[in-house]
Design a binder for these strands. Structure first.
Lengths: 110, 110
DNA sequence: CTGTTATATAACTAGTATGTTATATATCTG
DNA sequence: CAGATATATAACATACTAGTTATATAACAG
């Protein structure tokens, strides 16, 4: 679980999430990614570096271009970590005493 | 998808992830959460505020205590958003041309 | 070789995050 | 009521983030 910090942190930025959304349509070069986002090329380049460092994308070299595409590594790690929360939430949902205790204190205290 | 920024950002911090992990075992008060983390109480209180703002936990009032437990809201949103990436990754996995193109450029360029 | 295109890096600024200590508030306990 | 306990808030320092402009590097086109 080495990437978790970097992965969640990378996903916390809306520009980076938008970049990932764009990449679901397929590979894109840096300039192709700069275009839709009203932002300078160095800014996007750094976002890409962050995404790459987090294991969310990979890049290949194609002449002077560096096409990016989605990578599975980080998503897998995140999924595994979230599984813990999902499991606990599912369990709590079935424990009525929690719910009842919450209702009791939210209403009138004795 | 209002919480996405806050949720991913909240999860980016290892202390907050550890708090959530602790909460999978069940409700805990602020002081109970302070204890295992070598950090002051105000620091934990703020982490809890962040987690609550992100929809990752909820708190009830029990006298002078404020027990926290996991909430499903944020996890659901995150899961929905990640579904997009998972889907795209699954699709790309089947597109051999991508893989071949990557292999070609990674080896010898003509 | 020269100019152009694609990308990366450096240096800087402004805003935000995270921790600390000190203090306020509210409930419990005797 | 008085003191103790549980939590929140304020004020502050430090460090990180994300953007900018200017510049470097490297490959392509002619």
């Amino acid at each position: 679980m080495i990437h978790l910090d970097a992965a969640f942190s990378a996903l916390a930025d809306p520009t980076r999430r938008a970049i990932l959304a764009r990449l679901t349509l397929g590979e894109a070069t840096v300039m192709e990614l700069v275009e839709p986002f009203d932002m300078t090329q160095p800014a996007i380049s750094r976002h890409l570096k962050v995404l790459e460092g987090a294991g969310l994308i990979v890049r290949r070299v194609d002449g002077t271009k560096r096409p990016c595409r989605l990578a599975p590594a980080a998503v897998t790690e995140i999924d595994q970590w979230l599984a813990m929360l999902r499991e606990a939430l599912a369990k709590n949902y079935n424990r009525l005493d929690d719910v009842l205790a919450a209702m009791k204190t939210e209403k009138g205290n004795p």
